[in-house]
Write a protein that binds this DNA or RNA. Structure first.
Length: 925
RNA sequence: GCGCGGUUAGCUCAGCGGUAGAGCGCCUCUCUUACACAGAGGAUGUCACAGGUUCAAAUCCUGUACCGCGCACCA
């Protein structure tokens, strides 16, 4: 005897192992079939996967499994990302617990530790993906890593190609510098956070001792690097001062007042201190006016080139002192409370320091242009489409991409310098490692994967490699083709590229997706995917972002342990609609677990009723059609088969639109509401009759089909139960995941996107089965309501009379009275025209039927009257509404005819029912 | 500041031109031989506000308020 509740743990372990062992997720180029390819957004090897990964991968898995079942050669390419700064930070933290720094280890040893970490963490991630049910082959031969040998070749190839085209250059720019991470960052790796701060008004006296002017600043510590004050040339307050000199407080330097139209007269004092070395806007002003660039904050965030007392202090501490000193010197005119956004490092959340520095850049304008075109023409199409516009806007405003990072973990920039020829431009650390390179100082770059054998200029062989590594996104940008061995032009690459769809969260749309599109077009000649499915992020139940500091995060693996993977997948998928963020809570998981248990119990029910060695198997489509033709199918059979086909049609339409949430809901409702609550209940008595074999055959067909249909979304439970049924359904097919999606009885019969084909075998009479069942269900529901109203326990049967003036309708009920007696638990059911209402009976209406349930002694006359009067009231207002509409000549003349007809018949229905209710009320009185 | 999205039952959301829906929660009755992780029934909403278009508006348009998210060199 099977246990009453489903236990997901062992089942999941079992199948996840079997799927891997049988190598079911490996793909091979099959020219006879269309490929369906997704490359995984490679998770960073920073630690365990979180809820966001779970969502991202479950969505992909559902698509891949679905497309495989529709007959495509499905391939989901697995891999992980080295994750540059983020991962290096993780390692630095680990070292810190050992009381060490990366400098203690040195570059080489540090990288050894990183690689050791990769093997551990990479494995953990792959295990977690497997646990989530992901249809990824995680064998070593199949898993890619952004820093493995093949990907390194791709990175070099891309770098060198862009270099040759002049799209990579080295230049001195104002860049975002994280003093904690010790590296430059690109613009999109900077976050903006609102912070409460102050706006300090500082008086700068004129050099000649006259009044001078007052500037307003949020960063008083940078004043030591001021080399001008700018005012708007149209500003009458300051016009006379333009060209004059000011004496910089504390520093004592003399600086000019310059005219700049970018200065906003209305902000602050209308006078702006200009610090070209520490502010992007000031940097531009400095260039335009040929100002001096004085760096007062160095790359460690400490004060330099300034009065002795501040020197070596970090900028934050220096600010306090400087403000104090300004106050003491009576330079500080005002401190205003002020909220403004502060630049922070995406990875470590420390303040970003804008600094001038020589870095490597990629010229973006030319790369962006064809990507813009691809998005505009929808060669790359977004789901939901609302992302198209921001995507294009971002590309249009694109700035050059700073790709060099002053960290150790990553692809080392493939540029070498001859120690002899570039000696003046190279600086070495105490440990003898190249620390900085200056192109301004005359460094001569040689782009090469490995150390060049000989210097073309001096013939020497003493080369050093550029110390920087590439932005981690540089390698990620190549992912859709580097995973297939590019630059090698293999058959594999030709077959799988471009990939089908990219599934990603909106937070990396620019960081990653835009760059993939650009590099795909640049290196492969066409975009890397046709569709971008953009999903939201997982939030807590109240829509708050999950975060460590709020403590509202949910660990996906602990949830799968507790409720099962399928339950979690269901909970997530059923809410994944339209790219919106998903509120998530444990309650949702309980719902998922309950659904899984429901599925399991239907299996249990079927197994309990299947006699051993009976030879009963699932009826296939052909057999069902034959049975139908011979009249052997019941109304309930017709009805459920239609419902089933309809549900599958809906699933197909949803999936063609990447609406996975709705697809799942459709199946949920079909299975629970139609199949379990109605059909299964009607099948029960039939199992006691000669119809048993047919009944079981249909049940197996529907249940097996539902398992297939649900499999992409809930792979474990469906595979498990299907294997239990295998002997009765598809004895020759070893795995559910290799089965065809059960579209056979639905309209299209083909893969998603091709619907609109033949009507299904069961839809020809559709309206009839549907409307007949509706009538019966209506009657059943009314009787049940009466029972509940009078608190009749389910075990007790109840005498019921049904009457109507509609002969055909009565005929239908008469024919299916067993349905009613079973579902409504009646006894002595009388169905006939002109039945009188028994004196002490509860009454109800359904369609054309009057329903009477005699209840000796149980009935409270007043209560019954009130109940019926209430119903009459409802009908009355409905009637009034219809009458109102029909009285309006405008409605009659302008509304669609079908609509007018609908209202006419609704009115007639209301009138009819009202009259019948009034009769009952009169009798009660 | 500009842009995008949201505002519907206690909670989370679906519906997007013809009389308001789901899940969870709540109330009542039941351990009826698949499932109490269940079954049956019930209660609950001026669909943010104000105008407009329409025979008809939660649904389309305009504006307002509030919430969320992007983008932006206001020092």
């Amino acid at each position: 005897m099977l246990p009453k509740t489903y236990d997901p743990g062992p089942v999941e372990d079992k199948w996840s192992e079997i799927w891997q062992k049988e190598k079911l997720f490996i793909s091979a180029a099959d020219k006879g079939r269309k490929p369906f390819v997704i490359v995984i957004p490679p998770p960073n090897i920073t630690g365990a996967l979180h809820m966001g990964h779970a969502l991202n991968n479950i969505l992909q898995d559902s698509l891949v499994r679905y497309e495989r079942m529709t007959g495509k050669e499905a391939y989901w390419v697995p891999g992980t990302d080295h994750g540059g700064i983020a991962t290096q930070n993780v390692m630095e933290k680990m070292l810190k617990t050992e009381g060490r720094t990366k400098e203690d280890l040195g570059r080489e040893k540090f990288l050894e530790r990183m690689w050791a970490w990769y093997w551990v963490c990479g494995d953990t991630i792959l295990n977690q993906l497997r646990k989530l049910g992901c249809a990824l082959d995680t064998g070593k031969a199949n898993v890619r890593f952004t820093m493995d040998a093949k990907r390194a070749t791709a990175v070099f190839e891309a770098f060198s190609a862009l270099w040759k085209k002049g799209l990579i250059y080295r230049g001195e720019r104002m860049i975002n510098w994280c003093t904690r991470c010790g590296t430059a960052l690109s613009d999109i790796e900077v976050e903006y956070e609102e912070e409460k701060s102050k706006l300090w008004h500082i008086h700068y006296p004129a050099a000649d001792g006259s009044k001078g002017l007052t500037v307003a600043t949020t960063r008083p510590e940078t004043m030591l690097g001021d080399t001008a004050v700018a005012v708007n040339p149209e500003d009458d307050r300051y016009k006379t001062l333009i060209g004059g000199k000011l004496k910089l407080p504390l520093a004592g330097r003399v600086i000019p007042v310059i005219a700049e139209s970018v200065v906003d007269k209305t902000f602050g004092t209308g006078a702006v201190k200009v610090t070209p070395a520490h502010d992007p806007a000031d940097f531009e002003i400095g260039r335009r006016h040929g100002l001096q660039f004085i760096r007062v904050i160095d790359f460690t965030g400490r004060m330099v080139n300034c009065p002795e007392k501040y020197r070596g202090k970090n900028a934050q501490a220096a600010r306090k002192e400087i403000v104090e000193d300004l106050k003491a010197g009576e330079f500080l005119e005002k401190e205003e409370h002020y909220r403004h956004s502060v630049n922070k490092c995406e990875r470590c959340h420390q303040h970003i320091e804008p600094l001038v520095s020589e870095q490597w850049f990629v010229k973006m304008k030319d790369l962006a242009a064809p990507a813009i075109k691809a998005a505009e023409s929808e060669e790359v199409k977004f789901y939901p489409s609302s992302w198209k516009k921001p995507f294009i806007e971002w590309l249009k405003n694109i700035q050059d991409w700073c790709i060099s990072r002053q960290i150790w973990w990553g692809h080392r920039i493939p540029v070498w310098y001859c120690k002899t020829c570039s000696s003046a431009a190279l600086r070495f650390s105490a440990a003898g490692e190249l620390s900085r390179v200056s192109f301004k100082g005359g460094a001569k770059p040689a782009v090469s994967f490995a150390k060049p054998p000989k210097c073309p200029d001096c013939g020497g062989a003493d080369f050093v490699q550029d110390p920087d590594v590439l932005d981690t996104w540089f390698s990620s940008a190549l992912w859709p083709f580097s995973v297939f061995g590019w630059p090698q032009r293999s058959e594999e690459l030709a077959y799988y590229y471009p990939t089908s769809v990219l599934v990603t969260g909106y937070e990396i749309l620019y960081l990653w997706v835009a760059r993939m599109v650009m590099s795909g077009i640049e290196h492969m000649g066409r975009p890397p995917f046709s569709y971008v499915y953009v999903h939201g992020i997982i939030r807590d139940r109240h829509g708050k972002k999950m975060s460590k500091s709020l403590g509202n995060g949910i660990d996906p693996l602990s949830m799968t342990d507790k409720y099962g993977t399928d339950a979690m997948r269901f909970a997530i998928l059923s809410q994944a609609a339209g790219g919106k963020d998903i509120p998530f809570s444990e309650e949702a998981l309980i719902g998922g677990r309950n659904f899984v248990n429901k599925i399991y119990n239907v299996f249990r029910f079927i197994m309990m009723n299947l006699p051993e060695n009976s030879g009963i198997t699932s009826l296939d489509e052909k057999q069902l059609k034959a049975l139908k033709a011979s009249g052997a199918l019941t109304l309930a059979d017709d009805w459920i088969l239609e419902r089933y086909g309809g549900a599958l049609d809906d699933v197909k339409a949803c999936m063609a639109d990447y609406d996975i949430g709705n697809a799942v809901s459709v199946l949920y409702r079909f299975f629970w509401d139609d199949f379990c609550d109605w059909y299964l209940e009607l099948a029960k008595p039939r199992l006691e009759t000669a119809d048993k074999a047919v009944t079981l055959g249909i049940l197996l067909h529907l249940f097996g089909g539902t398992l297939k249909a649900l499999h992409p979304f809930m792979p474990y439970v469906t595979e498990e139960l299907f294997s239990g049924l295998k002997a009765y359904t598809s004895p020759d097919k070893p795995f559910l995941l290799k089965e065809k999606y059960p579209f056979s009885l639905s309209a299209g019969g083909g893969p998603a996107g091709l619907f609109g084909g033949q009507p299904s075998a069961f839809s020809l009479q559709s309206s009839q089965a549907e409307s007949s069942m509706k009538k019966i269900m209506g009657v059943v529901t009314q009787i049940r309501t009466l029972r509940a109203e009078f608190e009749i326990p389910p075990a007790r049967t109840v005498k019921t009379l049904i009457t109507s003036a509609d002969k055909n309708a009565l005929e239908l009920l008469k024919k299916h009275e067993s349905y009613i007696s079973r579902l409504a638990r009646t006894e002595g059911l009388e169905i006939a025209p002109d039945l009188a209402r028994p004196a002490r009976a509860a009454s109800a209406l359904s369609d054309a039927f009057n329903i009477y349930v005699p209840l000796e002694g149980m009935i409270d006359l007043e209560k019954e009257k009130a109940r019926i009067a209430k119903e009459a009231g409802r009908l009355g207002s409905d009637l009034a509404l219809c009458e109102g509409k029909l009285k309006s000549p405008n409605f009659i003349s302008r509304a669609a005819k079908a609509e007018v007809d609908r209202v006419v018949s609704r009115k007639a229905d209301a009138e009819n029912k009202l009259a019948r209710l009034e009769t009952i009320l009169r009798e009660l009185a």
